[in-house]
Amino acid sequence: MSLLEWLQGGLLISGALMFLVGSIGLVRFPDTFTRIHALTKADNLGLGLIVLGLIPASFSLSITLKLLLIWLLVMLASALSGHLVAWEARAQQVPLRQPGETENPEGTHE
């Protein structure tokens, strides 16, 4: 394997691991607000790393631009949906929680 392929491999694997970290954060974090963090930060970085890792696979201008466009769109989408969820959660006064507290909003028993 050439140096470039090593670099690519590193970027791809670390991008995928970033997704995994985001998912674990989504499961482990204590309340809705912190879960938004886990999701929108880790996933955007993960996708960015994967996109960077895929660019050397083709070295074609059109594909590179399309990959970057997809990344930009996903970032815009997660920023927007994260903001909307947080905005509505604040309006509905979703409680903040510290790690370790039990979670039991009214009416939902899971």
Partner: peptide, 17 residues
């Protein structure tokens, strides 16, 4: 509709896209 300024700002980018 949702009276959210960020949503409307994003729409000006998203709808053309």
């Amino acid at each position: 509709g949702l009276p959210n300024p960020l949503l409307h700002a994003c729409l000006t980018l998203l709808i053309p896209a």
